[in-house]
Amino acid sequence: MKKQKFKHKNEEEIKAYIAKHQLEAQRTESGLYYQIVKQGEGASPDPDSNITIAYLGYLTNGTIFDQNERLEINLSEVISGWIEGMPYFKEGGEGILLIPSHLAYGKTDYGNIPGGSVLIFDIQLISVS
């Protein structure tokens, strides 16, 4: 029952954020929201791809919890919201992922991210290999 309450709370929080910032994000069946701001022209990653990205991660209140100008990582090693969301991007593309807590760290605190938090990432997909 608690998981459903988190999902509902996160869904409302994401919808409010989208409305406030006038985004045109798409929703997936899992509850992930994404918006491609700049369409890339290269390959799209699959769940086992090595990717190079630049990103800024923050909460809906604007608090930044992580950023990186050039991260090289295998997509299988990240939160499920990224595994699901990154294939919507193409190399050179930029966009936003709005990730409910059940596709991130759940109800558990993770570093400076409070449990149950919606995570927002501004992402630039630099390359896929």
Rank of each mutant, 00 (worst) to 15 (best):
M1G: 12
K2A: 13
K2F: 11
Q4W: 07
K5I: 04
K5H: 10
F6G: 02
H8R: 12
H8Y: 11
K9M: 10
E11R: 11
E11Q: 14
E12T: 13
E13I: 05
A16T: 11
A19V: 12
K20S: 12
L23H: 00
A25Q: 02
Q26N: 14
R27H: 10
R27I: 09
R27Q: 15
L32G: 00
Y33G: 00
Y34I: 00
V37A: 14
K38Q: 12
K38M: 08
K38T: 13
K38W: 08
P45Y: 02
D46Y: 12
D46K: 15
D48Q: 15
S49L: 05
T52N: 09
T52K: 13
A54P: 06
Y55I: 06
L56M: 13
G57C: 07
L59E: 05
T60P: 07
F65A: 07
Q67R: 15
Q67F: 15
R70H: 15
L71Y: 10
N74K: 12
N74E: 13
L75D: 04
S76T: 09
I79K: 12
S80N: 13
G81M: 02
W82K: 02
G85I: 01
M86Q: 03
P87L: 03
E91L: 07
G93F: 00
E94K: 10
G95M: 01
G95H: 01
I96V: 12
L98Y: 02
I99F: 03
A104I: 04
Y105R: 08
S117I: 03
S117Q: 02
S117P: 04
I120P: 00
F121I: 02
I123D: 01
I123K: 00
I126N: 06
S127T: 07
V128H: 00
